[in-house]
Design a protein around this nucleic acid. Structure first.
Length: 426
DNA sequence: TCTGGGGTCCTAGGACCC
DNA sequence: TCTGGGGTCCTAGGACCC
């Protein structure tokens, strides 16, 4: 018999808001929110903002009255800052377990399985909490359990009930049952809005009822995902720790426009930008792409406007990370799906069939010399762009970012010299 | 007027093969 | 005229996550 798993899910509290507050301690008791790109939706809220009834993912314009009446502090998202703080948090967490999976910018699963019983309980979790806070200023919540799904729920409880001090150890079955009866089925990991509505029809409303369901029946009536959720709620682990970076399947770069775009030239400009950025991401991770897709769409939220949405996919001649090849193919694909007389609000570029550059065997008819020249050119390009003196290929222009709304952005406090706060000398 | 961006996994159905 | 069955692979789209 194999030893039972122990997973810890560590999740940063109100992550983006917490990052902003690091440099604005004056905002500690104030309601603060962070908006998505284009200042579109709410993506992070302080406890005070949640208390005002501001929901997650709510469009900003719908809560304008609350913002004004309650004097809510609003930030545009500053991903450079958040990524930087995130990597500091993750570096700290890494030292506490043999294996770790970075699940998102503000969450990581730690594997406590191989650690001694004493070194994986509540006291150890509090030690992790304190260390992260001391190193980064960020508060985290920690849920401990025998499956990832239960660890997620433990984390939810740690956030929901202040008396826990942000740590819940859910290894004890009695405690599991108690919690499952308190939370809704829709709070379970991988049970989204769609599935929870269907579950309700069959009389399943709480996590406990879901846990009591027959996994074989759930597999038949719903999906393998729901059946796994049932197993995991019963302490049977279906999801192992995975190395996300090593298995990455796609690279996507897309953006909504600040205002609708009607002419091909503007779309070409946007797609060029996204293709360039996607190619850069490929190179950052040492990958090559075999396939590229381009998509465009009109505003699906506005029913008064003619709707059009389309995508096109094409193979690259050889697997490549060369901006020029990806750009050329992307623009050809865009022209194939572009139609006149529509108001476009979004476009994007996908790269797929990725493989590590290191293991790539080039084809018989491929020009090895050209490939080596391409790599040198791309390396030079990346070097210059990292210095902040952006250069680009002719098609790219000065970029669509000019059109993006970003009215409340904070300074790049930790990544740009000029923006680093200065200590006052007395 | 104003509704994000970047991912993964699963499924159904079609093409194709023997 | 009658017109199988089983398998694999691929793709588009859906559901979900943060």
């Amino acid at each position: 018999m194999t030893a039972p798993h122990t997973f810890a899910l560590v999740d940063c509290n109100n992550f983006y808001v917490s990052c902003e507050r690091l440099f604005r301690p004056d905002l500690r008791q104030r309601p603060v929110i962070v908006l998505s790109n284009n200042d579109g939706c709410v993506v992070s809220r302080s406890a005070e903002a949640k208390a005002l009834g501001i929901g997650m993912a709510v469009p900003a314009y719908q809560i304008r009255h609350i913002i004004e009446r309650e004097n809510v502090v609003v930030f545009s998202s500053n991903y450079t800052l958040y990524a930087d703080i995130s990597s500091r948090v993750m570096a700290t967490l890494e030292s506490f377990a043999d294996a770790m999976e970075i699940y998102s910018i503000d969450e990581a699963f730690l594997d406590f399985s191989s650690m001694g019983a004493g070194a994986r309980g509540e006291a150890f979790a509090r030690h992790i909490q304190q260390t992260v806070a001391r190193h980064t200023g960020i508060q985290v919540s920690i849920g401990i359990a025998p499956t990832k799904t239960l660890a997620k729920l433990a984390n939810l409880a740690a956030k929901k009930y202040p008396a826990t001090g942000g740590v819940v150890d859910l290894r004890d079955p009695e405690r599991q049952h108690k919690l499952l009866k308190l939370v809704a089925a829709s709070d379970v990991w991988n049970v989204g809005r769609r599935t929870s509505r269907k579950l309700e029809v069959t009389g399943i409303e709480t996590a406990w009822q879901l846990a009591c369901a027959d996994p074989v029946q759930m597999r038949k009536r719903f999906s393998i995902t729901v059946s796994r959720a049932v197993h995991e709620l019963n302490g049977v682990s279906c999801y192992e720790l995975t190395d996300v970076r090593a298995t990455r399947r796609q690279v996507l770069c897309s953006r909504s426009f600040g205002s609708p775009v009607t002419n091909l030239e503007s779309l070409e400009l946007a797609v060029s930008e996204y293709a360039s950025r996607a190619a850069e991401k490929l190179r950052e991770e040492g990958l090559l792409a075999g396939v590229v897709s381009v998509f465009v769409r009109t505003n699906q939220h506005n029913s008064h406007v003619p709707q059009y949405s389309n995508s096109a996919t094409g193979e690259l001649l050889h697997p490549t990370a060369d901006t020029r090849h990806i750009l050329e193919r992307s623009l050809a694909l865009l022209r194939a799906i572009w139609k006149d007389r529509y108001q476009y609000v979004k476009a994007g570029v996908w790269l797929a069939e990725l493989q590590p550059q290191a293991s790539y065997q080039h084809g018989l008819f491929e020009d090895a010399e050209a490939r080596s020249r391409s790599q040198s050119l791309m390396a030079a390009l990346d070097h210059i762009n990292r210095r902040g003196e952006h250069i680009w290929f002719a098609a790219k222009g000065a970029g669509m970012d000019r059109h993006m709304r970003r009215e409340h952005v904070s300074p790049a406090s930790t990544t740009r010299w000029a923006d680093i706060p200065k200590a006052q000398a007395k």
